[in-house]
Design a protein around this nucleic acid. Sequence first.
RNA 1: GGGCCCGUAGCUCAGCUAGGUAGAGCAUCUGGCUUUUAACCAGGUGGUCCAGGGUUCGAAUCCCUGCGGGCCCGCCA
Length: 538
Amino acid sequence: MPATAASSAPTNNLYPSAITADDSMHWADVVAKELTSTKDEHLISAGISPTGFIHVGSLREAVTAETVRKALADRDADVRMIYLIDSYDPLRRRYEFLPDSFEDEVGRPISDIPCPYGCHDTYAGHFIKPFMDSMDDLGIDCEIFWTHELYRRGEFADAIDASFQRHDRVLEILSTVTGRSMPEGFYPFSPLCSACGRFSNGEVTGYEYPLVSYRCVCGEEGEVDIRKGEGKLSWRLEWPAKWAIFGVTCEPFGKDHAAAGGSYDSGIRLVREVFDAEPPKPIPYEFIQLKGKGQMHKSTGSAVSGVDALRMTPASVFSYTIARVNPERHIDYDSEMGILDMVDEYDRVERMYYESGATDKDEDLVRAYELSQPHGPREDMPMQIPYRHLVNVVQISKDFDDILETLRRTEDLGGISVNELKTLEERVDCVKYWLNAFAPEQVKYSIAEEMPDIGLSDAEAGFLSRLREELQGCDWEGDVIHNTVYETAKEEGLGAKKGFQALYRIFIERRNGPRMGYFLATLDRDFVLRRIAEAASA
RNA sequence: GGGCCCGUAGCUCAGCUAGGUAGAGCAUCUGGCUUUUAACCAGGUGGUCCAGGGUUCGAAUCCCUGCGGGCCCGCCA
């Protein structure tokens, strides 16, 4: 243990002051209010290091930032948002999913490493592309920067120069804040070795603007030009350097950076004492956890990627699940049945938004809804077809047209507008994706195309035969059908339970399923009658 | 060693930063319909508010101390 001591280890006070509601307000409005209390011009920054698979959690930062941006815009502040892709970060090690040959790429910037799957320009590009599409879906309004371009354009040159000029101060800050002593000859700058193409873990041997001389672990000795991006600042310096370069006034970041003695703490001092600028207002946020599965990692890929999250619910629903809770609270993301609850709540709050039935209690939720609309709320309330219902409809229909037809059997879609059609189609796609990849087996089934080869007892066949007659004449409505099934099963002496089961077996080859009457009502009547007849005579 | 979040109904959480005898959604149960079945409506059941102390006329709420869970702290959001 370094001697510098735990006794001086700082305690930070990030959280208590971070988001404090002085009255009942949505957290983003509280942040916006605080920000505008000093000035009206703001720059929100967020970013990501695309060194591997990007999971749901990574979206929290972007959504949090966007939510604050909207809240600021609603207060007529002059606000912009930037999103930095840390494309100049080195590959730290050869992850499991990478081919053996990538052993060679370790230490090189991910902007220089080829796409491991051969489908994008670079390694960074491969992992960031789908994420950028997600950002589009979420309607995140920001300007995107790639750090490797910033470095190569020399944007970091002044900051790098300052970190050399004030090297002693830098070391003092780092050792004080982290409570660790800095290793001999430590410089928070890694030259990009001209021989091996890696960020040298060797030595910095000298500096005279704009050249840094170095000795790489590969044996190479040389000089790099800080104006040409031939080297990079280490994270603890790079972050405050970005604040200074762009003039960032507000930034959300994960709790890993928020720990006492962590990079935000050192950043505060570095930005003031080395880069002569002020730190942004911090919005530390907790992580998203997968329900029952714990933490996610970029290096291993995750059970739920950011793209997955936006494919199983519409973007607005996802944003809502982020915006509805304070950033410092962790979120349990339940990709199974929880998805249905999530969308149900969203629909409920949507109704409150448009029908103004919200109580004080729900105000924050309604505001979260408003802030979660990628391009602002619509004029009129969108048509709501419950997710749970769609889960059935999707499974019994062939394609989208068929889905519309199925829906028309039980609901009056009237003259559905183009907008509504789009919304519905989006939901349908999400439901399909969810069913395919995340839904528990419990809710999955498919209509047997042909009469399944199951042995029905005489009693069951008799019941079905009689049921067919009864159904032939009845109104084709859920409750009517359901009652008919029940009554018939009882009258035939089979009992309700066995009667229902027989039907489940001949239609979906299971012993349970959606509520029978309503389920049959969504199916084509002739098909139902034909199948029952077939089963009865088999 | 340090930091953060959480612990309230079976589950997910509000309520805590103006202390005043516990709320929502989902689940469950009942009724609508003599119905185990996953759309709908109405109603009901359901809680030692983690524990112990303190402040107070009064504490889920404020303070202290523990316990339990999750996570972070030399580039994992």
